[in-house]
Amino acid sequence: MNAHVHQPPIDELAWRKSSYSSEEGGECVEVAARPGTVHVRDSKDTARAALAVAPTAWTAFIEFAAL
């Protein structure tokens, strides 16, 4: 049985920009966490589709990136 969890539209998520992003451009990532899903998008092109991953996958990515 598949359970469907209602997620708000992408434009209603509370996006947070990476602390490594600057106003000068460069590598800009925004993240919005919801129960069961972490959304990731390019802050320079918010019209593009966001990536949605499980919180465990996001945690694994962050731990790997910190190495």
Rank of each mutant, 00 (worst) to 15 (best):
E12Y: 05
K44I: 02
E12R: 15
Y20S: 13
A47T: 13
G36F: 02
A57G: 12
L51W: 14
E63N: 12
W58Y: 13
V5E: 06
P9E: 04
T59A: 15
A52S: 15
E12I: 01
C28D: 07
C28T: 10
A14D: 09
R34A: 14
T59G: 09
A66V: 01
A14M: 00
E12K: 15
D45K: 11
V53Q: 03
A66C: 02
L51N: 13
P9S: 07
E30F: 13
S19G: 04
A47K: 12
H39D: 10
A3S: 11
T46F: 10
L13W: 04
D11F: 04
A32T: 09
N2G: 11
P8A: 04
V5T: 11
W15E: 03
V29F: 13
H39F: 15
F61A: 08
S19Q: 04
T46R: 15
D42V: 06
A54N: 02
L67Y: 08
K44M: 07
T56V: 09
S18G: 05
A54G: 05
A66Q: 11
L51C: 11
R48Q: 13
I62K: 07
N2H: 09
A57N: 01
S21C: 02
P55A: 04
H39W: 14
V29G: 07
V29Y: 10
A65W: 01
E63R: 13
E24H: 15
R41P: 08
A33Y: 03
S18R: 04
S19W: 02
T46I: 12
H6R: 11
S43Q: 05
P8F: 00
S19E: 03
V38Y: 06
S43D: 11
T59S: 14
F64R: 10
D11K: 08
S19I: 01
K17W: 03
R16L: 00
K17V: 15
E63Y: 04
R34P: 01
H4V: 15
I10H: 10
A52I: 12
R48N: 07
S19T: 09
L67M: 01
T37V: 14
R34I: 06
A33H: 14
A54K: 03
I10N: 08
L67A: 05
S21G: 01
E27G: 14
E23L: 04
S21L: 05
V40H: 08
V29K: 13
V5K: 10
W15R: 07
T56K: 06
E24W: 12
H6W: 13
P9N: 10
R41E: 06
W15N: 05
Q7I: 04
K44S: 04
C28F: 07
R48E: 14
D45S: 08
G26H: 14
G25K: 01
A52R: 10
A3H: 08
K17P: 01
H39S: 15
F61K: 03
V38W: 05
A50P: 14
F64W: 12
L51S: 13
T37C: 06
P9A: 09
C28M: 10
E27I: 14
F61D: 06
V31W: 09
R34H: 15
A65E: 10
